[in-house]
Design a protein around this nucleic acid. Structure first.
Lengths: 115, 115
DNA sequence: CCAGCATATCGTAATTTTCCGATGCAGGGT
DNA sequence: ACCCTGCATCGGAAAATTACGATATGCTGG
């Protein structure tokens, strides 16, 4: 992948998180983390049709993207969503659709659904 | 990539959009589309340090993910964000952080930033 | 201290993504 | 009718992702 310069820090952060979330298994993981309302662990391995090592690597990707918090290694690893990151991401998305300036109109034939 | 069954329709849609946005060039494209507040076209090729064919393919990915609307081919193609999709995505993210049930507490040591 | 369990990391193969140049295709101008 | 412009698509090479089994690592209980 070629480096794109001119990206703001926020855009880079968003791209990293988007990339991490752009995988069905990882979406399933974060939904499970959200549902459990707590940090789960190898429970995820039972939920997913994947090998333990694969799940571990998915968790690593999510951790490195900064969307999930968790212990590194040991015997009883625990993970949970980073609520701040999730919220930041949601705000980033809203920021695209409805920019601070407030000019949320789109010149195409589809009206903006924002408010 | 292995298929993960048990994903809801929303989760699949989210994963598809996340995957599309998980690339710096494509993030740059949607930011540009948002900034221009209108449908631009080959202007994107000038903005990005990529070949015209590559930009065209990025646009195709974004279109297929349903985050961008645009004409297919001809001479004067135009694209714009699909505001509904962006908004849907933002709400999906908020739904993770602050689920409808309202139990947004996290058992980890990081408090939930929601509200 | 040692065995056993839970998780992380390594090595690696298959698949997918990313990118480019070349080519195809549709419209607009002459 | 002809070429030129602007974009899409193809073919293919290089790089990244995804997945697994095997192995390493680090607690914890006996």
């Amino acid at each position: 992948m070629k480096a794109i310069d001119g990206l703001t820090t926020d855009e880079e952060r968003a791209a990293a998180i988007f990339r991490a979330l752009g995988n069905p298994a990882r979406v399933r993981i974060i939904m499970e983390l959200a549902r459990q309302n707590a940090c789960v662990t190898g429970d995820l391995v039972e939920v997913l049709p994947l090998a333990q090592s694969t799940v571990s690597e998915h968790l690593k990707v999510l951790r490195e993207a900064g969307i999930v918090l968790g212990s590194s290694n040991g015997r009883d690893a625990r993970y949970c969503l980073d609520p701040e990151a999730v919220r930041w991401l949601a705000n980033f998305c809203f920021g695209i659709c409805c920019p601070p300036g407030g000019n949320s109109a789109c010149a195409c034939d589809v009206p903006c659904a924002c408010d």
